[in-house]
Simulated scan of single mutants.
Amino acid sequence: MKITSLLYHDVVTEGNFEESGFMGNGPNSYKLDETSFCDHLSKAAGNLKGQGEFFKTFLRNGQVESHDIQLITFDDGGVSFITRIAPLLEKELIQGVFFISTKFIGQKGFLNGDQIRSLAERGHIIGSHSHSHPERISALTYQQVLNEWKESKVILEEILGEEVNTASIPGGFFSNEVARSAQEAGYKVLFTSEPTNTCYYIGDCMITGRYSIKRGDSGNKAEQIVKGSAIFRIKQFLFWNLKKVVKKVLGDSYLSLRKKLIK
């Protein structure tokens, strides 16, 4: 089984980055304006329609008829999930997978509990993006990461009144300990930020990657990824693995360097 997932964050009006989600040059570099996002959807919609139902079936049953699922996912929990993104997805009959950092629920620029519940009632999929969105989750102790996953799961399940069994890793800081703790917390599918559609298991938790989209990326990029273009996928894979080496070598210094480079 393969899962090809696009990774987005917020959608805002041109230049109004404070509308939704986390603030700062780093988070803002992942926020698309609505015109750009509509272009992405128009080009990728044909491959994404109805795919969310396959994913729901897999989460329920652990198996699915389709052996290649294509998804569109969104990280952080910004209010644009419901004010801008969901209505645009629904026009195209697409279900989004929305990952929520639960510490920020109800804060300015973020979804509240009623809005999260509404997204689920409208057919979208809700998952955890950790509780506090640590800058470098892989640097925490195993128990700290486990607490992040567990607390987020409890909060979301109280809001939704149903099991939450999928999650995504904040910041792309994957480690085997992060994955094992997600599995221990009860998640069935964990999304990384590694640009791959290959799936594998740690315990009974499936690990799968995503292809990240940033502000300035063309709709053609999204289209080519969901249509299986080897060129686009290989370019992202090579860049990601180069960045992974830099992260490992620099450790915490990577975060400071990244902030300076995107000012």
Rank of each mutant, 00 (worst) to 15 (best):
I213Q: 07
K214N: 03
N220W: 11
S218E: 08
S229N: 08
K227T: 12
C199A: 12
T192F: 05
T196P: 00
N197F: 09
T196H: 05
E184Q: 15
Y200V: 00
L190P: 07
S229A: 06
E184K: 15
I213Y: 06
N197T: 07
C199Y: 04
C199Q: 13
S218H: 03
N197K: 11
T196W: 06
K188R: 15
Q183R: 14
R210W: 04
P195D: 09
Y200N: 04
K214M: 10
G209L: 10
S193K: 01
T198I: 09
V189Q: 07
Q224R: 14
C199S: 14
G209I: 01
N197R: 13
C199I: 03
N220Q: 11
Q183F: 14
T196E: 07
S218C: 04
K227S: 14
I207K: 07
K221E: 01
T198Y: 10
M206Y: 00
V226P: 00
T192Q: 00
D204A: 14
Y201D: 01
G216I: 13
E184I: 14
G203S: 13
E223S: 15
E223K: 15
G219T: 12
Q183M: 11
D217G: 01
D217T: 00
M206P: 01
I202V: 15
Y211H: 07
I207Y: 05
K188G: 02
K221Y: 07
V189R: 06
I207D: 04
D217E: 05
P195H: 13
T198N: 09
I225Y: 01
I213P: 01
R210L: 08
T198R: 12
A222I: 02
C199G: 07
Y201G: 00
T208N: 07
E194D: 02
C205D: 06
N197P: 01
T192S: 10
K227M: 13
E184A: 15
T208G: 00
R210P: 00
A222L: 07
N220I: 13
D204M: 12
M206F: 02
K227Y: 13
I213V: 14
A185L: 13
F191K: 05
T198E: 11
T192C: 04
T208D: 03
R215L: 06
S212L: 08
G203N: 14
I213T: 03
Y187P: 02
R215S: 14
Y201W: 09
S229W: 10
K214V: 03
Y187D: 08
G203P: 10
R215D: 12
M206H: 03
R215W: 05
R215M: 05
K221W: 02
